[in-house]
Amino acid sequence: MGALQPRDRKEKKLRRLIDNDLLTMISRLVVGIVFIYASFYKVIDPGSFARSIWFYHLVPGNLINLIALILPWLELLCGLALVFGIHYRGAVIWANVLTIVFIIALYTTIYRGLSVDCGCFKASGAASYKAWRSIIFDLFLLVFTLHLYFSRSQRWRLAR
C-alpha cells in the first residue's frame, strides 16, 4: 500500500469530523431542541395549527386536522428521540424529511405569492413571520439534520 494521496487524506479528515462524537451530540441537541420547541404550541393548540396548514393551500381539506393532530407529536417524539438517542435512526430520517418538506412548503408560498405565517413555532393565522426568514432558518437546520444522517457516531445513546 502506498502513502495516502492528499485527496484521500482530506476525505478522511472530513469523515472524522462528521463522525466526531461531540459534534454529533451538538447537532442532536440543536435539532432535538428545535423540534421539541417547535412542537410545543402546536400540541397545545392544534386548531390554530390547522389554520396555519390551511393557509398553505397544499393539503386536501379533510386531511388538515389529522395532520395538525399528528405532526406536532411526531416533531416532539423526534426531538426527544434525538436528544436521548432512542429510535435514533428513525428520528434522523424524520428530522430530514420534515425539514425538507417545510422548506418546500415555504418556498411554494413565495412562488404562489401567498402571504402566510409559517406556523413553525407558534401556530397562528397572522402573516407575521416572513417566509424567506423561515426558509433560511430551515436551511441552517438542514445542515444539522444532514450531519446526523451521515454521522456514524454511536455514543451517548440510550438505545440503538
Binding site: 393532530l69 399528528i70 406536532p72 407529536w73 411526531l74 417524539l77 435514533y88 435512526r89 428513525g90 428520528a91
Partner: peptide, 19 residues
C-alpha cells in the same frame, strides 16, 4: 431506520389522536 421511523409515526398518531 425505516422500521423505527414507522414506529415513531404510529406512536405520534396514537398520542395525537388520543390526546
Amino acid at each position: 431506520a425505516i422500521k423505527q421511523a414507522i414506529i415513531l409515526l404510529v406512536i405520534a398518531a396514537i398520542l395525537g389522536l388520543g390526546a
